[in-house]
Design a protein around this nucleic acid. Structure first.
Lengths: 225, 225
DNA sequence: GAGCTGGACGTACGCTGTTCGTGACGAACA
DNA sequence: TGTTCGTCACGAACAGCGTACGTCCAGCTC
């Protein structure tokens, strides 16, 4: 047997499981869930996989591509609704609420969904489902198509607000209320008078009201034709 | 006369105007307008002022504080509307359109407005004006308070989309249409069927429709009470 | 065996925001 | 006048960041 005592290569491959796209995304997702978006750096992900950051570029198109893969993973966990003409509105709320919760369970990811055109599989399935619900409700196709964008936006925003609240629980609304009520009533008669309304509702409540406003608006538009 | 040839101090103050908060924000704003948000780094701003980045921290609370100051500057340029009970709806569109244009004129800034609670002067004046218009329209105060948030969100989003389009003019909608129409009609019957509607409209058109949907929804809710 | 290919990844580049310590200097005081 | 104190200015350094580039090596094919 040849037992030459030469230095062990730092690229000792058989000692580590081979990387894969799934492994990379899994590691990133775990970091996201436990430490939030800022922890999802190429170095941190690579360290979690016992490798170096340059190794990841085979599997993901940079950090941007990694974040997209994570988003799609998260969206893929959302249970869809079978459109029902009689219940579509409640179903829409349910579906968007699930999306909201999926985002909130991953601190910080909501902000990365904001400008993503729907192009990956899970996101497209979600879009298809939203369209299905809106059309089941008899809404105009053009309005439905545009509203899908708006609903996605509302979800992302609500999740971002929930993220901000997590960092600063309860303190934010209080500070804001203080700010509003300490303004000059001469200069800001409405803001001071309606300070309570301006800070009312948690992000979920505001979120569901926002959905309703958009839906009610679409119904009014459809009724008008 | 004493002409001792000793090394000239690098802190030759009389040769430079003293820094000020306005000077810092002005320099940052100029960089933002000409090169977009990514150029607004502490080093770039400092270089524009012929100093070092550490000098800026006397005037702004880090980059975050600098961005907030910039936002407020931009918002302060927006001409407000005197609320008129008969024209409030058109006025709202006009006001939000001005906001949209102000953001679009500063590439990338829209994304930084997304999670900012309204706390600086110009932003508060804008909020006061939006509330004024909505209440002039006879809408419910609680709905008006919540809708102000939604309108701000819609503006930011539209501006962000315009920013993205600037980077990728026309190409994005085409790619998306291609993507949608090349999907399996079995799996995505609606997305494929309504691909045209999904990519229709530029960011301004979609923006104004979104405003209308929210407004129509609020009117329906007010009518229902 | 030789050559090729693609995965693995170390090294280095060019940046980022921020902190800390020090110098310069004006105002106030004794 | 000399000294003290507070504030501005800012260099140096810290602790990162994403990524490009070049090298190594295992596995495969001929």
């Amino acid at each position: 047997m040849n037992t030459t005592p030469h230095p062990r290569s730092t690229r000792d491959r058989p000692a580590k499981p081979p990387l894969s796209r799934d492994a990379v995304v899994d590691a990133a997702l775990a970091l996201l869930k436990s430490e939030g978006l800022d922890a999802v750096t190429m170095r941190r992900v690579a360290a979690a996989l016992d490798t170096g950051p340059a190794s990841l570029y085979v599997y993901v198109a940079g950090r941007e591509g990694l974040l997209q893969a994570i988003q799609d993973r998260i969206i893929a966990t959302i249970e869809l609704e079978e459109p029902d003409r009689l219940r579509w509105r409640g179903q829409l709320h349910t579906l968007l609420d699930r999306m909201y919760r999926a985002l909130v369970a991953h601190p910080g990811i909501a902000a990365t969904t904001m400008t993503e055109p729907p192009s990956m599989d899970a996101t497209l399935h979600l879009l298809e489902n939203i369209l299905g619900l809106l059309l089941a409700g008899g809404l105009e196709p053009q309005d439905a198509a545009w509203a899908a964008d708006i609903f996605a936006l509302l979800v992302s925003y609500a999740a971002m607000e929930a993220d901000a609240r997590r960092t600063n629980p309860r303190e934010q609304a209080d500070e804001l209320y203080q700010r509003f009520t300490s303004l000059s009533p001469e200069t800001f008669p409405l803001v001071t008078a309606y300070a309570t309304q301006l800070v009312a509702g948690d992000s979920e409540e505001r979120f569901h009201v926002a959905i309703d406003m958009v839906v009610d608006g679409m119904i009014a538009r459809a009724t008008r034709r």
